[in-house]
Design a protein around this nucleic acid. Structure first.
Lengths: 211, 211
DNA sequence: GCCTGTGAAGCTATTCACAGCT
DNA sequence: AGCTGTGAATAGCTTCACAGGC
């Protein structure tokens, strides 16, 4: 199985390749893709080893074929349904962000307890009450959930998702979640991210001041 | 200098410690902090080596002192100003998210080109026109910028930020940004994150089905 | 010549394991 | 007994460097 880093980069490569395809580029070299992705050419070639599609030394990679190869590796055979829980600012931002982006991964419903939101369409996505969560997950065989609820509710929501059958969670709440073995949790903590950037910005500034 | 991972975790530890402090906990052991953060105790102790505050074998770490130690390591001596560019859904989400969260890192202004938004208060943050960007950055000595503009504008915005003196960028646009040496760029790509989670969710599911 | 694919080397991050302390 | 701090070992990731191909 491929490493987490590799899978993330493959997803990025595909996006870049789709842009290139839209720009009518027919083939591409590892060093070109590397520049776009901000990595080394060796990294690109190493990552592509897992997808099992080989380029040619003369033409590099065929853009269309490489996209197809990555898709075969990354995507499920059938389109998958995803749910989002927590229709606050961040939830709405993510709905807007994903709307019609990846046909293979569709947010089929959003959940919130606010009666003002329930049973409305939010950015093209149906907003349901939390009580319908299990039903929707089972109906659509949902394996992946996005959590954008306030910090205090995040763990309970994660538990509910897992109980209903979800085995991948993308958590935006600023708290690490516990989940049983066999459930993959990705935590994106924006507060942490900002502090990290601020810290390294400061280091760089001092570095550049030195000489 | 500490590694990127370590800095990220220190930020997380601090948040968890602040929660513990609010719960009146006076001291804490590495294994307790480890459970909360979802890492190993050895990892916690190794990370804490860089902050230069030592716990005691009997009492573990003094919560208040450890928070102080991490702050001394992570934070600038004076509060720092941050700017956000792109007041769309995601920009608003982030403004809401950070509002009054970390007094040491304050988003002093948000920027957008939409005349509808300019000169208004968005979630307690002043929204300015892009033409004022340089002025605000110089006035507040801003070193860190958050980019939440659409993909097509992200690179131009990054260039403008860097030219004005920013040396740390937190990029939420779904495209890797180029920046000169000495500028730290953190890229959070939510589309990639979701595809990654979906991929590993699928693997886990298959794993658990096997035996 | 300049590309790909890949074994081997190098580097970074994490974990082990234990001395030292109370 | 059970903790911390840390050298040493391990695991994981990235880059080097080169054979093989056109």
């Amino acid at each position: 199985m491929a490493s987490q880093r590799t899978v993330g980069r493959l997803s990025l490569y595909r996006q870049l390749l789709l842009d290139q395809q839209a720009a009518k580029k027919g083939n591409i070299y590892s060093h070109q893709l590397a520049v776009m992705a901000g990595v080394t050419p060796a990294q690109v070639r190493r990552d592509l080893m897992v997808v099992g599609y080989s380029g040619s030394p003369t033409k590099g990679y065929d853009v269309r074929e490489l996209i197809r190869g990555i898709a075969k590796f990354l995507d499920a055979p059938e389109p998958e349904a995803v749910v989002l829980v927590g229709v606050g600012n961040l939830g709405r931002a993510i709905l807007a962000y994903y709307a019609g982006r990846r046909p293979n991964l569709k947010i089929v419903a959003a959940f919130d307890n606010d009666p003002q939101k329930v049973d409305r369409l939010v950015l093209g996505c149906r907003c349901c009450s939390m009580s319908q969560l299990d039903e929707v997950i089972q109906q659509h065989q949902v394996k992946t959930g996005i959590i954008t609820v306030p910090v205090g509710e995040a763990q309970a929501v994660a538990d509910q998702l897992v109980r209903a059958g979800v085995c991948g969670v993308l958590n935006f709440a600023p708290v690490p979640l516990w989940a049983p073995e066999g459930v993959f949790v990705e935590h994106i903590d924006m507060a942490v991210a900002l502090e990290k950037v601020a810290y390294f910005a400061r280091q760089r500034k001092q570095e550049t001041v030195k000489p």
